[in-house]
């Protein structure tokens, strides 16, 4: 149950609230569900802190404010033009109301193994700008995700922004999520890919990441290596798919068995097979 609600309009006003034990409430789509019990919980809203919501470009980097909503991001020109893999992931996230309320920072901080933006951000080599009363630090997303619901966020610290270097314009950006339905579905498995090729079609860099297949969303170095230096064809993709199945550690739950997830995880990469 939500008790006291604070709405600070600056980071300076936020820090003492966090020090007093208030929970950070960004979009609330996770927190309001988690806090339905009888225990009272004070929250500090981030929505009044303008600097957290901006989306901007500079120094060759794109900076996505942690409070930008999924819907805002999914339709933002910078995201659509340069970060297609993220736009695709955002379009599968929740439903229109959840995309309108939920935020990128919230999806990251929740650190669900099934968080829809996480494989896409990993494939983009995203870094997080963390802020606290002590100042700011930058952490790669891959180092931030420690386990289901566990992150490197320190007490009194928030995610301020996500910083991404846009892939080369010609790079292939791909995202696919397997859900048990087409909206409001928690991922059974997901795959994000950012693959750069040279003029001859040889893969110069492959970045692959999966969701719902391990305790955290994660990159797949062996599968990436299996593609690098190869052309994207049935043979190379089949080898990389085998490496994905080798690398993942899925679990069985109400949505799918571990065996299905492992099989499907590799299959997702085969979607990139060139068609005659």
């Amino acid at each position: 149950m939500i008790g006291a609600v604070y709405c600070p309009t600056s980071l300076e006003a936020l820090w003492p609230l966090l020090a007093d034990g208030a929970h950070v409430l960004a979009g609330g789509t996770d927190l309001l569900v988690a806090k339905r019990g009888p225990a009272s919980c004070a929250v500090a809203l981030l929505e009044g802190i303008g600097e957290l919501a901006g989306i901007s470009e500079g120094d060759g980097l794109i900076r996505l404010g942690a409070m930008a909503s999924h819907a805002t991001l999914a339709r933002h020109p910078l995201v659509r033009q340069h970060l297609a893999v993220l736009a695709l992931a955002l379009e599968t996230l929740g439903s229109p109301p959840i995309r309108a309320m939920g935020t990128l920072g919230g999806n990251i901080a929740t650190a669900s193994p099934a968080g829809d933006t996480l494989p896409a951000l990993l494939a983009l080599n995203a870094r997080l700008e963390l802020a606290s009363a002590k100042g700011r630090r930058v952490v790669p997303l891959a180092d931030f995700l420690l386990g289901p619901g566990r992150t490197a966020l320190a007490a009194g610290e928030i995610i301020a922004a996500v910083v991404v270097a846009p892939p080369a314009p010609a790079a292939l950006q791909h995202f696919e999520k397997i859900g048990r339905r087409d909206a409001l579905a928690i991922a059974v498995a997901s795959l994000a890919a950012v693959i750069a090729t040279d003029a001859a079609g040889t893969v110069t860099e492959a970045r692959l990441a999966v969701g719902s297949l391990a305790p955290t969303a994660r990159r797949l170095p062996a599968a990436e290596a299996a593609l690098t230096g190869q052309r994207l064809n049935r043979e190379s993709l089949t080898r990389a798919a085998a490496a994905i199945r080798e690398a993942v550690s899925p679990m069985t739950d109400v949505r799918a068995s571990a065996a299905y997830r492992r099989q499907a995880a590799g299959n997702l990469l085969l979607r990139l097979t060139p068609q005659p």
């Binding site: 439903s95 048990r180 339905r181 087409d182 909206a183 409001l184 579905a185 928690i186 109400v254 949505r255």
Partner: peptide, 24 residues
């Protein structure tokens, strides 16, 4: 899929008991 096991619905809420949405 109710995912019934030992009298307990594994899909005991709307995040696990899935009905089709308009998109489905």
């Amino acid at each position: 899929d109710p995912a019934l096991e030992n009298g307990c619905m594994g899909a005991g809420d709307l995040s696990r008991y899935l009905i089709p949405t308009a998109l489905d």
